[in-house]
Nucleic acid binder design. Structure first.
Lengths: 212, 212
DNA sequence: TATTAAGTACACCGATCTGTTTACGTAACG
DNA sequence: CGTTACGTAAACAGATCGGTGTACTTAATA
């Protein structure tokens, strides 16, 4: 125990149980929901003993929180860093869903856990706030008159599309994208582009997967 | 058993157990969520024996479905029937939330049950579709160019506000109302009213409680 | 090689859940 | 009156849940 601090978890010579647990959690929590997925099932899928799981995560709640924290990197952030797109295109790219996303896991967690003070609920709030901030920042880049307002509006559209897609079992992101286009054109002084309100399909069609 | 057919339930001389069960379900399912509320708790709150509860409802799933069906009359429909409002005002009134609504129970049910084929999930879908149809109808009344599109867009805004309010623990309906105002003005040919995109508070402020 | 951390297998605990059973009141109606 | 549906109370089934305890194996390091 000299080199490499053990840190919160000692993964120095382990066989990667923690990663397998998180990976299995990701899939199971998404596919079946948090409440409908037991720890036994997670452990079985991760090929990890229950004892080990509880040595890495003090409780299921903690695992859920970490699952949400791990979710982030896969999705939205990639959109905002695409240098090949204009700010306006980046804003619209946030609405190009890969259709493989069942429901924004942050909304799902907030609903399933039902406790605003649960660590995962807190993180969901932070994440949503961060996404809105990124949208605001990009809106400012795009020259929007009121970037904060546009950012918050676009964030709401993403959540609406996610929720509605879940309830209706039908992709609502194109509708959200159409609204977004209207709002963006309306918020940028010298707004070019096509018409202003008529329907348009999914925009830009960036192949980057994103989950609001 | 001569007069008054017994029907699906014989409530002829009962003391209203069924109603008490549904009333208790409404409150508990909303306040605590469906999965976190056991039948024992429902029965205790309804002051009804478990046996009676299961004579009225074959299973909890059935009770949940009926709970959602009973929810409807309280909320949205009232908005569309207000003769004192213009069609445009009625569309905006759908965004005046009483802040007492924790989350649209249809979204919550769809997320909690996690099975699109669950009767309650099916009903949630039907309900959301019906609301969108009502919005479309009103949009047509208001003279919108593309009523179907506007109706679907406004429905998405309501769901977005509901979901976001839940996750952020902060009322997002004013934001949704602002977007709605833009979309409505944009969709109605001779759109009067104020400016086109700047922020405006909650509209009309109809005191009618509604839950998207 | 001796130590030590990481992981395993599996029984087990107490709690909670949906749902059932049994045995018993009670009020309305013919 | 007696019948009958509606209702109660409480124990109980059977399953699953989150979480522990114990005794064991494995593998990297000092």
């Amino acid at each position: 125990m000299t080199e490499f601090e053990k840190g919160p978890r000692g993964r120095r010579r382990g066989r990667g149980a923690r990663e397998r647990i998180l990976s299995a959690s990701q899939q199971l929590f998404r596919d079946q929901g948090i409440n409908r997925t037991g720890m036994n099932e997670v452990c079985a899928a991760a090929q990890v003993s229950k004892r080990t799981a509880y040595q890495h995560f003090a409780s299921k709640d903690e695992l859920v929180a970490e699952y949400l924290r791990r979710f982030d990197p896969d999705v939205m952030p990639g959109v905002f860093d695409r240098a090949d797109l204009s700010p306006r295109e980046r804003l619209l790219a946030a609405f190009a869903m890969p259709a493989s996303t069942p429901l924004c896991p942050y909304i799902a967690a907030a609903v399933e856990l039902h406790d605003p003070e649960h660590p995962a609920s807190r993180y969901a709030r932070d994440y949503k706030t961060a996404i809105a901030a990124r949208l605001t920042e990009t809106a400012r880049e795009a020259g929007a008159r009121n970037p904060e307002q546009l950012g918050e509006q676009l964030a709401l559209l993403i959540d609406g599309a996610a929720a509605r897609t879940r309830v209706l079992n039908h992709d609502s992101f194109p509708t959200a994208a159409a609204i977004a286009a209207v709002l963006i054109d309306n918020a940028i002084p010298a707004a070019p582009s096509e018409q202003s309100s008529d329907d348009r399909g999914a925009p830009a069609s960036a192949p980057v997967p994103i989950g609001g």
